[in-house]
Amino acid sequence: MVVEAAKVEAAVGKVLDPHINVPLTEMGMLSNVEVSDCGDVDVSLVFPCLGCPAFTMLKENVKQQVQRVEGVDNVRVKVDWEASWDRSMMSERAKEYAAKSGYRI
C-alpha cells in the first residue's frame, strides 16, 4: 500500500513546537518527506536553533506520530543539514499566535 505524503505531513503537524506551541508544519520545521513504495518514510526536520532543548524529543514525537499513518512500515526522522530555517517559513497564523503571547516574530 502506498503511503500518502499528505498524511505523513498531517501527522507531523500533530507535534507542537516546544516553545511556541504551534504545529511543526506551521513553524516551517518540516523540511522534506520521502515515501518509498514499500512503506519506508524519511522525514527531515530543520531546527530554528541548534541548541534546541527538544532536539531528541521532537524527533521521537514525529517518529511516533508518523508510525501511526496507514501503510507506514519504517520511519526515519533526520535533520536536514542543508536546510536553513528562517522566520519567513512560519505561517502567518503562527506569527499572530506568538505575538498575542508577547513574542514578536
Binding site: 536553533c49 541548534l50 541548541g51 534546541c52 532543548p53 532536539f55 533526520k78 535533520v79 543539514w81
Partner: peptide, 17 residues
C-alpha cells in the same frame, strides 16, 4: 552555553552520518 553545546551536538550528529 546552550548554543555552543548545540553546535557541538549538530556537528557530532552530522559527522557521524
Amino acid at each position: 552555553a546552550e548554543d555552543k553545546l548545540g553546535h557541538t551536538r549538530a556537528l557530532f550528529r552530522f559527522m557521524e552520518e
